[in-house]
Design a protein around this nucleic acid. Structure first.
Length: 137
DNA sequence: GCCAACGTTGGC
DNA sequence: GCCAACGTTGGC
């Protein structure tokens, strides 16, 4: 199973709001980048990902799961982009900051470190295990 | 189809 | 608030 990382600015869409949405989840819209789109299209129901707060907080704060695979984004007027539905699974006992990720051996090649602008990123199994451990899971 | 100009993102 | 990195747009 592949793993993912979803970036969001807390002022736009925070982990708290994702958690409040509960098991029925919400759609993850607003992607307007083709690499991110490719990642969205590759997601399968049941795959899990990290929920990352950019700008404010700059930390992985929780784990989410794909509950609906790629379908058109109704907020995209061009009709070129789509989205998936995700639900909150659990919060990390300890948020893992970008600073900690940068300092951790084995995470040097995380996309979060090297291409911070990509809003939906794949995470390798190794990276997933390391960040989960750092987060207290 | 190239590339300069511009806009946006996000870390600092 | 600044600026580097990146993506997109539009003139040629």
């Amino acid at each position: 199973m592949a793993h993912w990382l979803y970036k969001s600015e807390p002022s736009v869409w925070s982990w708290d709001r994702q958690a409040e949405a509960g098991p029925q989840g919400t759609f993850w819209n607003g992607v307007r980048n083709h690499v991110a789109k490719q990642n969205l299209m590759a997601m399968k129901t049941g795959e899990q990902g990290f929920f990352y707060h950019s700008n404010e907080g700059k930390a992985v704060v929780g784990i989410v799961e794909v509950i609906r695979e790629y379908y058109p984004d109704h907020t995209d007027e061009s009709g070129r982009f789509g989205m998936v539905d995700i639900k909150a699974v659990k919060a990390l006992p300890r948020p893992v900051t970008l600073e900690a990720i940068k300092a951790e051996p084995g995470l040097e090649s995380m996309i979060l470190v090297n291409n911070s602008r990509l809003s939906v990123q794949p995470v390798t199994d190794e990276e997933w295990a390391i960040v989960c451990r750092m987060g207290g899971l």
